[in-house]
Design a protein around this nucleic acid. Structure first.
Lengths: 233, 233, 233, 233
DNA sequence: GATGAATGAGGATTCATTCAT
DNA sequence: CATGAATGAATCCTCATTCAT
């Protein structure tokens, strides 16, 4: 998973030092991501990051000039250009809007929501205010493209006569809200529902998609039949 | 002690010291709320709270034993009893489910979302994990009651034949997600959408309510006519 | 017990305020003595003194300009001119040296050691260094007269041929050490022996007196018959 | 890392950093001991300890988690294992009781009383109550073993017929009292006798030992019958 | 490069002391 | 006189950051 592994040449068993040296930055970023997500910026100690990455305190500063730089690096490193890839998929998708929306949401969950990458969103939501440049960057590279992608899915549905006319922006916000809730239920303790109120992400996604699709359904079209939400009747 | 009041020239006003004493906790809680929301728990210095409340450092500790106690007090003060009041309103509400849901969402916005109180939610989402005790408290006193209230509104709709059968938990999560999005767009920099993408809360609420109501509409009943979301129309 | 009571005129039931007013300083000194002995100078909080005396924090400063002044007052107030009284008793004592020494030690225990007054000695031993003037005063008014008194008792014994010649100073120190041990076993936690090692003061005194008397016995004179150790008898 | 050593010009001396690291805890304990003895626990500032040890404030906390831990370490460091060593000496001592008692007292003075270690006892007497945990530790590790050692010396004397039967506990207390007096005359201002009343420790010890030995001497005289002091046989 | 000992600015907290009522 | 709210200097302790080895 750490990118740096790709630079590792050791087929079998390279000397430990060398191998680790290459891997350092990646390991540090990983450790830092975990801790920042878990404890917030102020609550994370550099020494702890070092410890979790298996290096000494000083080493962290060898790779990152300061705690702030480490934070920024963590965010930057985890904001990859996923959207170019997804845009391509969007272009080539064949199928109705219902299937497409469900596919998008499920795919997002698999590729982002369910992975540590979602921790970055939680991070930015929580601490973004202290890092305006990063926030701006994140908004431009993640929020805005995500919003756009959703808009295009919806627009496509309208164009195909499968969805009714609507305020694209606001509906897209609603869908983002749905996704965000999943992120927070995964990363924020107050949103992680208690024992008896389990939240299964895929069920949740199916349920939300269902509501939105019905809610946005082309006016009085034929009734949908994909009613099952999975949990109770 | 009470005699001295007669020598006070301020007729209606209580003696300065006494008046302030009564007001202190409230002033401090207000100042603390602002700062906690603005800078987070760790980022807020006690001295700053004192300064904003117009008192000295030591005075804060006169009313709150520690920073954490102050924080807890802020949380409690901005939550307490809201749901009992709302539950009462719920009991006495007359009207159909559509009106009720819209009323609930709008009222929540006016009384919580639009106020500083919503900053508390953002805080808990961001830093809750560092305060397990408070997180538990918050979940019990806010999240859970909120979830319950929404469930009851939905259940009422089902009972009245206005909403179709559904998985109450998951639908309620969806509605909570909608509200949460508003909170974050208000308090988290990365969610505060840029210039051209304005988000008007009431419009957003109307839009979400519309989608959910359509999405949850009693099965193949007569077609709804409450179509306007207010934005595009 | 508080001196101030002597100034109290209320035969039956004077107004509470007035009565208390007179008693204040004494009550404060008493409370302060207890606390200083128990927790040391730094460990005693003025508010606690006030609380124990049943007054408000500010009141303490009405009577004593500062914590240091309070401390000094506590010491001064408890160093009474006991020695003039004792010197008189010494002059008029009739009996042999053995009886006299035992009488002195027992009397000291009853009048000083067993009372709160002994707490002052513990105080001075513990904190004297921080209050040089008081220490000097205490030494002059208590230690030195005590030492003198013991010396005179011993000298009398030598003069009467009941005790052998000795270095008066050093032997007197030894006797003081014995007394001091009792004080510390009463007031210092590390000297308060554990469960099974009880220390009964009068038994201890009897035992010490016995050893000293034997140790100082007139050379190979007639055998002593002062066999009783004092406890059971 | 080890290579750099070759460039070091200090042949026999370890590299400055490393050498200091080894020495730090010891240096700090020494500095702390001095200050605790001089000013008491509460009166000693951590920064002062640091300064006296020639390091910065933070460094102290690198080795001792808190002021209290530092204090405990000082106590432990100045006590540990003394009694095992002494018990060994006790086992192998050859000679009569008089010599043994004198040897014990003198040795104690040389190894403890005359050193800063005795300051710890004064400290514990003065502030022990604020640290129940340490007080308990001190009592268990110092007072009790000391008391035991003295008892054994006395018991040995009785067994050899050199000392008369006696109440071991109480006599041992008396000897402890003697030692304690020396400690206090060294560390407590009120007990440090004035100019003309000099107290030479060794003379004092000789004097006390003499008195006790005479006082406890196996009769050479007619057999006493006042053996029972009441506690043990 | 890596280490981890050392630093010291920063912030929470305590408590003697003041003073308006 | 008595009160107790308010003050702020003093101190403990944390932790990002530096740097000699």
């Amino acid at each position: 998973m750490p990118l740096s592994k790709f630079f590792c040449t050791n087929a079998g068993l390279a000397p430990k030092r060398a191998r680790r040296k290459e891997a350092r930055p990646g390991e540090l970023l990983e450790a830092a991501l975990d801790l920042f997500v878990e404890k917030g910026f102020a609550g994370t100690r550099m020494e702890e990051v070092a410890a979790r990455a298996g290096v000494s305190k000083g080493t962290v500063f060898l790779y990152f000039a300061s705690k702030e730089e480490l934070f920024k690096a963590v965010v930057r490193h985890n904001i990859s250009g996923r959207f170019t890839e997804w845009n391509a998929e969007f272009e080539s998708f064949e199928g109705n809007s219902a299937d497409m929306l469900r596919y998008c949401m499920q795919t997002w969950w698999e590729r982002v929501g369910a992975t540590q990458a979602s921790g970055i969103s939680k991070l930015m939501i929580s601490e973004g205010r202290n890092f305006p440049e990063i926030a701006e960057f994140y908004q431009r590279e993640v929020i805005e493209p995500g919003h756009q992608l959703i808009r295009r899915v919806l627009q496509r549905g309208i164009d195909r006569g499968e969805l009714r006319a609507m305020d694209l922006n606001y509906v897209a916000y609603g869908l983002m809200a749905s996704m965000m809730f999943l992120i927070l239920s995964k990363h924020s303790i107050v949103m992680s529902l208690k024992e008896d109120m389990t939240l299964d992400p895929l069920t949740y996604i199916a349920c939300q998609a269902d509501i939105f699709l019905r809610g946005l359904g082309a006016e009085p079209t034929a009734p949908h039949t994909d009613t099952d939400t999975g949990t109770d009747a």
